[in-house]
Nucleic acid binder design. Structure first.
Length: 453
DNA sequence: CATCTGGCCAATATTGCTGG
DNA sequence: CCAGCAATATTGGCCAGATG
């Protein structure tokens, strides 16, 4: 726990395993000084090497003592130099956005890729373009820029650096892109393929040296909020029926969930069931540091009070909703157990071989302690945290709330519960909306992990 | 011995900065 | 504004120690 993302990250590292550490700015500095420069966000191997070449500094403490802001901006550029100078002092102003809007669509394969002939590489690229177009069509976006990424094997690199016989091993990664006046749509597979293949030909790399390809379309001309990054179960559920999933507002489908007329769900919710959704905008949430800076002195204490109590209300609100949802889920489970063949889900399950094994949904919150594992068998919640029931998970959330009260700034715990709600909401949507199909689509044939997680 | 739990890491999917 | 490229974020697979 810290006042910035960087300090929270340092604290998290100190807290492992199985603990929790709260660092304020003054105590954080000593820990930041010990970090390797490479450990700072935004510093990769090239930047770290450059800093070593110019300043002969390997740790944050060394660099902080040796270098002025102008020296750093001269070495790394204005933006990176300024940012790194601040990070060295624990100042990290990056905002946290749980689900930023999508800005590109792509697909890449860099595992198990081997070609003998150029034609094979070209055919593979066209397939990749086809996949990208399918995703663009699914998300309903168009884009003007096509990008190609190529993994090229470093000649003579030792096999030790390769995982198994099909890993990409040590590679140079090359990027090329081009921007057009008009945009590609999901139907423009041929045009995208033509542009990407021309970028590939410009590189003139022998097909035998290729270890992977990536194709990306960016400069999207769409409502960036309409398609969220990181598609998982919710994307599949959403693609089937719903258009937007956004925890910050009550989604349309959640409203529909309450109205049997508006939903094709085979399982109309029991009377009184509430969708798990919370309007975060209704609460003023912010992380307060515990030190007394001028900014804090200037801030009215009444406002601080409101902030904290708003968050506590939000947490309570979420818990109430979760408990309502649990009751509704239990009622539905009982109803289903008494007439299993009446449900569309059961029919689909029979057709596809059913969900033979439980489906586990992992929910990771901001706090390790708040990790929950929900287990579904078919459409029934059969456990959480292994044998723990869903209500126990909620009890655990309650005990966490008590445990951290007074110590924890409001946001992290609230975020944890929001994420739990998010997952429940997503899963609940999927369950009510042909879950078997959606979940089997996630992992066709249920291969891999025997529990189908 | 099976399951739980936490952690690591490669693969995958973006995002954002700099220099021209 | 664009191309090139470095870096981050997220996911899933796997593993090993702990636990019952």
């Amino acid at each position: 726990i810290g006042e910035s993302r960087l300090i929270a990250r340092v604290a998290t590292a100190l807290a492992k395993p199985d603990g929790c550490v709260h660092l304020d700015r003054s105590t954080a500095q000593a820990h930041i000084d010990k970090l390797q420069i490479r450990d700072l966000p935004g510093v990769g191997p090239r930047t770290a090497a450059r800093i070593w070449d110019v300043f002969r500094a390997a740790t944050c403490g060394e660099l902080r003592e040796k270098v002025t802001r102008p020296q750093l901006t001269q070495c790394l550029g204005r933006k990176n130099g300024d940012r790194l100078f601040d990070l060295l002092r624990g100042v990290d102003t990056r905002p946290w956005e749980p689900r930023p809007g999508r800005k590109s669509v792509g697909a890449q394969v860099s595992w198990g890729v081997r070609f003998d002939e150029d034609d094979q590489a070209t055919a593979f690229l066209r397939q990749l373009c086809s996949e990208v177009c399918a995703r663009m069509a699914e998300y309903g976006v168009r884009g003007r820029s096509a990008g190609l990424k190529v993994w090229r094997a470093v000649q003579g690199a030792p096999d030790l650096l390769r995982k198994g016989s099909v890993g990409h091993g040590l590679c140079d990664i090359l990027n090329r892109s081009l921007t057009r006046g008009t945009s590609f749509s999901g139907q423009d597979e041929h045009e995208l393929g033509r542009d990407v293949v021309s970028l590939w030909k410009q590189l003139a790399i022998p097909a035998k040296q290729v270890r992977g390809f990536g194709v990306h379309v960016s400069k999207l001309d769409c409502d960036a909020t309409a398609s969220r990054a990181r598609p998982t179960v919710c994307r599949i559920a959403a693609a089937r029926k719903r258009s937007v999933f956004n925890i910050q507002t009550v989604p349309e489908w959640a409203k529909g969930f309450m109205d049997p007329e508006a939903s094709s769900s085979p399982h109309p919710p029991s009377p009184g069931a509430q969708p798990i959704a919370v309007d975060l905008d209704a609460y003023e949430l912010q992380i307060d540091s515990s030190d007394s800076t001028a900014a804090r002195r200037d801030r009215p204490s009444a406002k601080k009070q409101r902030t904290r109590s708003g968050a506590e209300q939000a947490i309570q609100h979420l818990i109430d909703i979760l408990e309502d949802e649990l009751r509704a889920a239990e009622a539905l489970a009982v109803q289903e157990a008494s007439a299993p063949n009446s449900s569309l889900l059961s029919e689909r399950g029979a057709l596809t071989g059913g969900l033979a094994s439980p489906v586990r949904i992992m929910v990771e919150g901001c706090l390790e302690d708040a990790m929950h594992q929900l287990v579904f068998q078919g459409q029934h919640v059969v456990g959480a945290h292994g044998a723990m029931a869903l209500d126990s998970a909620i009890s655990k959330a309650r005990s966490l709330q008590d445990r951290w009260k007074g110590l924890l700034p409001p946001t992290p715990l609230h975020a944890t519960l929001s994420q739990l709600a998010f997952a429940l909401q997503t899963v609940w949507c999927a369950i009510c909306d042909n879950a078997a199909e959606a979940l089997l689509a996630v992992k066709p044939g249920g291969g891999g992990d025997s529990s189908g997680s």
